[in-house]
Design a protein around this nucleic acid. Structure first.
Length: 358
DNA sequence: GTTACCCCGCCAAGCTGTGA
DNA sequence: TCACAGCTTGGCGGGGTAAC
């Protein structure tokens, strides 16, 4: 059985079938009728009939070649983040991106083939910006390459990062979550219960989002009339989170803890259990970000004190910002949007236990 | 190794036909 | 003759390939 590949129909084929020029086909399909351009309704219908009969779809590459836009938005992630289940942290971002792109009439182009020999993804391959296949791109991920982002910015390529990012040499566009206010609300919740010394278990690398959380931690102290104690900031591997360590903290007057690392949660819960403590009777705990959407956090109580990140909305707004940049490239300056998080007062924060006399 | 041409669609400018 | 409707022409873009 022969199996020949049929050549895809081109604009010229449509024009031939409709008895018009290729430009007329273009005018009809791009709905550019109006002003100086007028197409008779019967001519327009002939073009549409020919399009339907041939199954013609404009070639995005040719559109791009013609200097216009191909209505493709790239989605690039600096690490493999595409969800395998709905509870994945990145799933809502992608839902928002897909939904808004579809609503605005854009297709999405997923960049997956740019992993370097070190296993890290690259925006540039052999010096070329691969994102140029798309009109613009939404970027996600925690392990971004700042040098590449700076270069992308210098090239003037339109992109929006999901999450606040700062790079040397310029200001990029982003849609961020307001981690500062959200973290301050969590800490204020501790202080309202009577806590005065709340430890902060930090990620070893200070990314922008982590820095925002820590700013919120300091802000809440100032608003409560407390002096932020730098000695309450801990960076500690999970293996060293033990009952003995918790007792040491208690001896220092620490009655609760916030953590920004999901990886710490199982170790913390195990240590609290090993210490013979209960939540929140003996110790209060809060997580700085959505805790229940990843299997890593199954050890955390379902009603943990936390805040939720507006991830789907961030994806939606990232696409909106990007398409605004595309329709108005001279719009001036970076476009930045910070969305509020929602504070969730769970049951893991309560009044502090009575401390032993010093 | 260099040049010419093709791919495909968009856009600005220009052309033709028609009616007042 | 002029205005306008309705359409066509020619140029352009970057990369690949064929011809020289």
């Amino acid at each position: 059985m022969s199996h020949s590949v049929k050549r895809r129909p081109r604009q010229a084929d449509v024009a031939r079938l409709a008895g018009v020029s290729p430009t007329t086909v273009s005018l009809v399909l791009n709905n550019r009728v109006g002003g100086n351009v007028r197409i008779r309704p019967e001519t327009r219908q002939r073009v549409l009939d020919a399009v339907a009969r041939l199954g013609y779809v404009a070639d995005p590459a040719a559109r791009s070649l013609a200097g216009g836009q191909n209505r493709l938005l790239g989605v690039f992630t600096f690490e493999a983040i595409f969800p395998i289940q709905q509870r994945d942290f990145y799933y809502p971002f992608l839902v928002g991106i897909e939904r808004e792109a579809g609503r605005l009439g854009y297709d999405l182009l997923l960049f997956t083939s740019s992993t370097g020999t070190d296993g890290k993804r690259r925006l540039y391959q052999r010096g070329n910006n691969r994102l140029r296949m798309a009109d613009g791109a939404v970027l996600l991920g925690n392990e971004e390459n700042k040098q590449e982002l700076s270069r992308l910015l210098a090239e003037g390529y339109p992109f929006v990062f999901v999450g606040r990012r700062e790079v040397p040499g310029g200001e990029l566009s982003y849609v961020a979550a307001d981690y500062t206010t959200a973290t301050a609300q969590v800490l204020a919740h501790f202080f309202a219960h009577g806590h005065r010394r709340v430890a902060y278990l930090a990620h070893p690398i200070e990314t922008e989002s982590m820095a925002d959380r820590r700013a919120g931690y300091r802000l809440a102290h100032r608003e409560a009339g407390l002096e932020p104690d730098p000695n309450l900031l801990f960076q500690r591997p999970s293996a060293e989170i033990t009952a003995a360590w918790l007792h040491t903290l208690r001896a220092q007057g620490i009655t609760g803890m916030v953590t920004e690392m999901g990886e710490h949660v199982p170790a913390l819960m195990a240590a609290i259990h090993a210490a013979g403590w209960s939540l929140p009777g003996d110790f209060s705990l809060a997580f700085l970000g959505d805790p229940h959407l990843n299997d890593d956090h199954d050890d955390l109580p379902r009603d943990c004190t936390t805040f939720t990140i507006p991830r789907e909305e961030m994806g939606i707004q990232a696409v909106r910002l990007l398409t605004q940049m595309l329709s108005n490239p001279e719009g001036g300056g970076p476009r930045r949007l910070t969305l509020p998080c929602r504070f969730v007062p769970g049951s893991t924060v309560g009044p502090p236990p009575p401390l032993p006399n010093p």
